[in-house]
Amino acid sequence: MKYSIKVNEVRAKEGSNIKGFATVVFGDSFKITNIAILENREKGELFVSMPRYKSNEKDANGGGVYKDVCNPITAEFREELYTNILEEYNKVVANENRDMEEDKGSIATPEFSVTVTPFTRENSNIRGLARIYFEDSFIVNNVNLLQGKENIFVAMPSYKTKQVDEQGRAIYRDVCYPVTKEFRKKLYAEIERAYNEALDKQKQEAQEKVQNGNDKSQQPKTYENEFIQKDSSPKPFR
């Protein structure tokens, strides 16, 4: 898969282990931001941390559980991608070439597939969650399908910034998103198609379940076991 990497070094505050942030673009179509480059001080090594979000789950101590917004699927691609990110960071620190492109394919637009799980949540406009798979190597989680005034629309994973709009509301920015208008249209259309297909399947399964329940309730009741039990009981002598 063809991708490019750009790294920015961070002059973090004293005590922070953040060394930089990386951005990865698949082909010229899809961008991943907020990839952190951190330092393990005990080992004196750098490592890569993908963008994360706080889930509703709790750990054994009652603390919040964080999960990756997106991440490599295979060990091979993880090793390749993380190694290239760290190499690019070292180049930036050494004031060498700042942009790197890793060509692992001949196509600019990566192949992808999507899965969608429709669901509703009380007092929420969420109608489903989608996952995007890029060439069986990289996954993007937490893609929301939201109910608008008229139609369902796709919302990419986002994070809350410290900025506010004119009404004083917090501004959110996408963690990962389509770069080009053409790819955005193609990707969102596929997500919406998969959502409608999954929704139709859910409705069909619900109808079949109701129908099967009605069929069972309409079957004549048999009293064979009752008769056997009654006949086998001792009878008074007459």
Rank of each mutant, 00 (worst) to 15 (best):
D215P: 01
S217T: 13
E14Q: 12
E122P: 01
Q229A: 10
E111Q: 13
T23W: 00
E9G: 04
C176T: 05
S113V: 03
V140T: 02
E150C: 06
R52M: 14
D68W: 05
I107Q: 13
K43E: 15
K149T: 14
P51W: 00
S29I: 06
V154W: 05
A170E: 14
E88G: 03
T115G: 05
N95T: 09
Q207E: 15
A194C: 08
K230L: 12
G20W: 01
Q218H: 08
I35Y: 00
A194S: 14
L199P: 05
F119W: 07
K104D: 11
T74F: 03
R127Y: 06
I228D: 13
I18W: 00
N17L: 10
T161W: 03
Q202A: 07
E96Q: 13
N95A: 12
A130W: 00
P178A: 04
V210P: 02
E39A: 06
R78K: 15
Q202V: 07
A94D: 14
Q204P: 00
P234A: 04
E111W: 01
E111H: 09
V25D: 06
E166T: 12
A36S: 13
T109N: 12
Y223K: 05
P110S: 03
E80I: 01
N144G: 01
P157H: 02
N40F: 02
Y188W: 04
D165T: 04
F112M: 06
V93H: 03
G168K: 05
Q204T: 07
K235R: 14
Y133K: 09
Y177Q: 10
T33H: 06
L146K: 13
E197I: 11
Q229T: 08
F134E: 03
P220K: 06
T161E: 09
Y82A: 09
A108H: 09
K54E: 14
Y177D: 07
K104T: 06
R121D: 10
F183T: 07
N144E: 15
G27C: 05
A75G: 09
D200Q: 11
A75V: 11
A75W: 01
R169F: 10
K43G: 02
M1Y: 00
I37R: 03
A198I: 01
K221M: 10
A108C: 06
S113G: 11
T115A: 13
G213T: 08
V140L: 03
S233L: 11
R41A: 08
E80M: 10
C70N: 14
I37W: 01
M100S: 14
K31N: 07
R238E: 14
T222K: 14
G168S: 07
K181I: 09
V25K: 02
E135M: 10
N90H: 12
K203I: 08
V48Y: 02
E226R: 05
P72W: 00
P220W: 02
E14L: 09
D103A: 13
G128F: 00
D28G: 13
Y3W: 08
Y3I: 09
Q167N: 15
V140W: 00
K54G: 07
